[in-house]
């Protein structure tokens, strides 16, 4: 069910990126797609009643170096969270570049409307 909602969000983003005429809105559409995927990744690792996958002193036995079993059974999967962090950084980089290109285009043409910015054809 929740996965379907994620997919819906992804589709909204795709629709926005494909249909809208405003450059900034296209960028937002792409960002919505990216965040839908991030949400999907986070939900993959989650299970009900899970705890955050951060080890602190109470779960750690300094003598043996072992970690409490209850923690290992309950914690959510940390790998998707690491992936999402990386994906967010990448998204930030491409967002900054896209916005700067939008600003430059606005300086040249004075508009964000892609139907009026059309030097290049097929």
């Amino acid at each position: 069910m929740l996965y379907a909602l994620c997919f819906l969000l992804f589709m909204i983003g795709l629709y926005c990126a494909v249909v809208k005429k405003n450059m900034v809105k296209i960028v937002f559409g792409i960002m919505i797609m990216e965040y839908a995927v991030n949400l999907f990744l986070i939900m993959l690792g989650y299970h009900f009643g899970g705890v955050a996958p951060i080890i602190d002193k109470s779960q750690f036995d300094p003598g043996t170096g072992q970690i409490a079993g209850s923690f290992l059974n309950n914690s959510v999967d940390p790998l998707p969270q690491a992936l999402v962090l990386t994906a967010i950084v990448i998204g930030l980089g491409s967002l900054a570049l896209m916005i700067s290109i939008c600003i430059r285009t606005y300086e040249k043409y004075g508009t964000f409307d892609i139907t009026q910015i059309r030097r290049l054809k097929g």
Binding site: L92, G93, L97, I99, S100, I103, E107
Partner: peptide
């Protein structure tokens, strides 16, 4: 990134990565 995006001067090259 924020500093460069906040300037509208046309001669600043706006190429930032990550």
């Amino acid at each position: 990134i924020i500093l460069v995006l906040s300037t509208f001067r046309p001669d600043v090259s706006v190429k930032e990565k990550e």
